[in-house]
């Protein structure tokens, strides 16, 4: 990254924090609902130094890892079935889109009624949050395998299952990568929705706990953590992977 770009971004952040401090100094809002930047950073520091945030983050990532990997596996299987079978797609393809359009927080009451206030309920919400977007993208991935590649492979005597795993699977990797990126984003949101209403542990639970004790500094601090992690994972993992794949596959 170019230096002037980094400087611009840091300057922007400084300005935002400056305005924040200014509003705080002007005493427009009560301190309890509008903490100073310093107070929020102190809360962040204390949270990490005391280890509480690390424990919460660890639990959250454990939930995310279990939920997302299940969503990827189940979503891929559903996507392949819908991508390969016209019959299945015609019959149930519409419902896949309907399922995908349900916000993941809607599943929380259902999960709690089924599994109680357990970590499993949280994982369940994440699985539902990520599976359908994964399935839809895998389905597109298979539909978008360039026909000239399958034709070329067929002229070389490739057919049946080898045609599927030697040509169709690798040819669908770019869309698969987009699916992964979206599944991660949806799961991350679902994770927070699930944890907010759970009995912990987890970052979302810590957030609702802070709310119960009217600790606005902690609430804002945790929101910042959630945003920063979301951006970092997207930028350093999924966006990078997707770019590499797109370039190699000649799509960029």
């Amino acid at each position: 990254m170019k230096w002037n770009l980094i400087i611009k971004r840091i300057l922007f952040l400084v300005v935002v924090i400056g305005i924040w401090q200014l509003i705080f100094t002007l005493n427009i809002f009560e301190d309890i609902i509008f903490p100073s930047p310093f107070k929020v950073f102190t809360a962040l520091y204390e949270g990490f130094a005391g280890g509480d945030f690390f424990v919460a983050l660890g639990a959250s990532f454990k939930h995310l890892f279990s939920g997302l990997s299940l969503a990827i596996v189940i979503g891929t299987i559903i996507g392949v079935i819908f991508g390969k079978s016209k019959q299945a797609d015609e019959t149930a393809g519409m419902y896949l889109i309907a399922m995908q359009s349900i916000p993941s927080i809607v599943w929380v009451p259902l999960a709690i009624m089924l599994f109680g206030f357990t970590e499993f309920a949280v994982v369940f919400v994440i699985v539902l949050g990520g599976t359908f977007v994964m399935a839809l993208n895998v389905r597109s991935a298979i539909h978008n395998v360039p026909p000239q590649l399958t034709r070329a492979a067929r002229t070389m005597g490739t057919k049946g299952f080898p045609l599927f795993y030697r040509v169709e699977i690798p040819a669908s990797i770019p869309y698969f990568m987009s699916g992964l990126r979206l599944a991660w984003a949806f799961s991350w949101r679902a994770l927070m929705a699930g944890e907010l209403l759970s009995n912990g542990p987890g970052l979302g639970y810590t957030l609702s706990y802070a709310q119960d004790y009217a600790r606005m500094d902690q609430v804002i601090g945790i929101i910042i953590i959630i945003g920063v992690i979301g951006a970092l994972v997207d930028h350093f993992v999924f966006s990078k992977l997707e770019k590499t794949v797109m370039r190699r596959w000649g799509l960029q």
Binding site: P146, Q148, L149, R151, A152, V167, A171, I173, W249, G250
Partner: peptide, 12 residues
């Protein structure tokens, strides 16, 4: 053996 107008090579 067939050669198409588009090279139809496997990018991976």
């Amino acid at each position: 053996g067939m050669v198409f107008q588009q090279p139809s090579l496997f990018p991976w």
